[in-house]
Design a protein around this nucleic acid. Sequence first.
DNA 1: CGTGTAAGGAATTCTGACACG
DNA 2: CGTGTAAGGAATTCTGACACG
Lengths: 108, 108
Amino acid sequence: MGNDLSYKDKKVITIGVVRDLTGLSERQIRYYEERKLIFPERTAGGSRKYSFSDVELLMKIANKIEDGIQTHEIRKEMIREQKKQNQDEMRRKMIQGQLNAQFGLRKN
Amino acid sequence: MGNDLSYKDKKVITIGVVRDLTGLSERQIRYYEERKLIFPERTAGGSRKYSFSDVELLMKIANKIEDGIQTHEIRKEMIREQKKQNQDEMRRKMIQGQLNAQFGLRKN
DNA sequence: CGTGTAAGGAATTCTGACACG
DNA sequence: CGTGTAAGGAATTCTGACACG
């Protein structure tokens, strides 16, 4: 079933609150976006909006940076993980598709 | 076990986003606070912060207002519900206490 | 009673740049 | 490379008040 995109992934938190939640500076938070590690949405007026998932991700990123890993490396890691997840999702869907074809109408 | 106070109840959403999420005006949102129906937290600078629960509650409130119910009535309803919940919680705890006393150490 | 609005000010956020290392 | 900072401007939010009904 398609994930609800419930609270955890809704982009509703402005950068100031994210700063307070993570302890990072706004500069850092914006920089990680520049390096394509994080992707906030924007309000009509142009302010960034983050989700709780983003907040968690930011803390993971901050930890890696503290360990001396560069943003470029972090990005590659993230892309790798993303690919893997996509594959898993693909497999899951294909198997479900097979089952549906043979035993019918269980709507994904 | 004490609820995690996870995403749903964390006060992190500024009034502008709440406005967009609920379709209410900022005026309405602030007024319902004045009438003690909703209790946002504040940032260091004094801006209001709401939770997803608050957003849901606001929409319920808005529905009741549309039905012609006055804020004072809504407040009484809410207090009634709150009392009931407290009682239920109290009973639950007492029963748990009894069980612990007789059969020991299952930590709530 | 519930809501809109104009008013003035303060807090928030934005971008692009310079600095350091 | 990652981060701090001062700069100027725009968007956001706040409060108290007047208005209407």
